[in-house]
Design a binder for these strands. Structure first.
Lengths: 340, 340
DNA sequence: AATATTTAGTTAATCGATTAACCAACTTGA
DNA sequence: TCAAGTTGGTTAATCGATTAACTAAATATT
């Protein structure tokens, strides 16, 4: 039951060599400038290449050179403006450095993540930038033991220390945003996170709790709910929080889509922002300032994180012993939704 | 000045074969299920594979099999919700069909697009889904002559008819949105597009003009301005349109970011939406319904377009003679900004 | 019992480049 | 004039898999 494959007539270096009446080695040297070739021969070869519209077979090249000038980028989610901008920055930096990017989205599926990294490993890419999903990623240890370059971006896994990483300071982020709300007099602050058991969520929650502790406010785990990084689920999470007898007066939401969901739910309930419910979102998403009221956000710099991550990967590729844990500070973009 | 390369100790199939005391062929057959191997041998091999955490070298596999199970996706822009969702859909469909996706963003750079396709060609990928940027893309003809599978998505180039494509019906889209504004009594309608000389823009403008013509309204090219698909530039475009003596009363904007920019500019000018200026945007972006007033959009289905595009590519890969031009109809999501 | 078929493996050619090692012819220098 | 160096190439091994063709042993068939 073999599939009938239509054999493609693809020009190889051999064809070019034959046509130009030189050896394949010469063709290769002309293409790669690896040896001095006389102008006559060089031009003869180039003309044939031109005529046949010849492009060297990358698989063969990769196999021989043990390098692909391609990097893998494995992210766990996608249409969230922070991640999108980070991807964009990595892409851009890769382009600048002469690399291509193989982008894969695991959609928070741990098994798929492992499978993908397996696939990307072994010379399909020179290295991987990974934003891991939750769960045990000890399997990564095998790759790092093999000296296969991996760097973590945005999220990290604290049990694995020997992988370089570039993230935001999410503890500080959680702390700063919460403190801001506390200063406005809020005592019951809801926290809507995307996914559990990932460093971004964990660290922000720790920061949130630390701020509350400093204000001597008891920590209530019921105030911390999941919103799956989506509009609808963000709305549901907000609804759930606002339905409590406790009269929560502020919301701290961890991504743009959930923020939009939460705001639409608050409006639907005919509550006023920020008078009834204050809200702080995450990331400088573009509609923030035209939403009514304009949304106050706490941010991390996606471009810097992305570009830095790629540079770190490059360092790791060139030097297997390279190591660094880079953490970038958050900042706040204060508008109206927090009550300022 | 050769770079000192640290030779990586990578386990090959030969190592596995030696260790399991079988031939490399047997190892290959175990891995690929290409021949019946006794349970004893199979297990012996599998154990060694497990122990060494062995993964076959894809470059070698690709070279031999003349197939990579990877598709290239070349887009010309990125952080726009329509494109993002389309990419997401293509990704998802590729995953379902056992393919990986090599995503490259050309950022509207024609030369980079050509270079990228050159690179992706020749067995780095099995085929390419392309959303071409403007300019002469006759160079594509070389690839299609080689039977290299390419399909165009979202945008197309009308001078090349022998490449399958999946797009929206943008003429209809331009027509419908404009007609809607005309029915509300608007006569001076500004049109803000992202990039010139691409089919999406051209077709929508044709639709826009056709609608005006049917209402016997003279076409004024000054009403058609560029917004570069970005928030800031969208705002500038809106400002430029509203500054005219003509008193434009409606805006038809071709992507989410520019729509957000235009709205913020209108608010900045203390004009009311929809009373002073009606506005119709494009795409069902998530903040549409919480912006004040909620934004009316005309849409195309990014998921259907994306999934279909991948299926078309698959057809083209399996059958070089496959051909189709698929055009999906627009729909409208009416909210308040149009004056309804 | 002789022959045919099945099972379980092996051998070796192959994919299309890169590149170290080699070589021939020509220059240069003393 | 002859050794040394330079120029402009070529030869052939190699990267790490896949797979057609082959073989030996075991099993089935007549």
């Amino acid at each position: 039951m073999k599939k009938e494959t239509v054999r493609k007539e693809v020009t190889t270096m051999k064809d070019i060599a034959r046509e130009a009446e030189v050896s394949v080695a010469t063709v290769s040297h002309v293409i790669n400038n690896t040896k001095h070739i006389s102008d006559t021969t060089r031009n003869k070869v180039l003309r044939v290449i031109e005529r046949y519209n010849y492009v060297p077979n990358s698989a063969a090249k990769n196999l021989r050179q043990q390098s692909t000038k391609t990097a893998g980028l494995v992210v766990s989610s996608f249409p969230d403006s922070f991640v999108t901008e980070m991807i964009f920055a990595i892409e851009e930096r890769a382009k600048e450095m002469g690399y291509n990017l193989l982008l894969v989205n695991t959609n928070e599926d741990r098994d798929y993540e492992e499978k993908t990294i397996n696939l990307l490993h072994s010379k399909l890419v020179d290295g991987i930038i990974l934003s891991p999903t939750s769960g045990d990623i000890q399997y990564l240890q095998n790759y790092t033991n093999d000296n296969f370059p991996i760097v973590m971006v945005n999220r990290y896994e604290s049990t694995i220390e020997n992988i370089p990483r570039v993230t935001g300071d999410n503890f500080q982020l959680g702390y700063d945003a919460t403190l801001h709300l506390l200063k406005h007099g809020h005592k019951k602050i809801g926290f809507i996170y995307s996914y559990p058991n990932v460093s971004t969520t964990n660290d922000r929650i720790r920061g949130y709790q630390e701020a509350l502790k400093q204000y001597n406010i008891p920590i209530n785990d019921d105030y911390i709910v999941q919103g799956y990084a989506k509009v609808k689920e963000g709305a549901t999470a907000a609804e759930q929080l606002l339905a409590k007898d406790d009269q929560i007066t502020a919301l701290f939401v961890q991504n743009d889509l959930m923020t939009i969901g939460a705001i639409s739910k608050i409006k639907e309930l005919n509550l006023s922002i920020p008078d009834d419910i204050a809200i702080i979102g995450f990331g400088d998403f573009s509609s923030s300032h035209i939403i009514e009221p304009p949304v106050t956000n706490i941010l991390l710099p996606p471009e810097t994180i992305g570009r830095t991550a790629f540079d770190v990967l490059l360092n790791k590729i060139n030097n297997p012993n390279y190591m660094s844990h880079i953490e970038l500070p958050p900042s706040m973009l204060i508008r109206k939704s927090c009550g300022c």
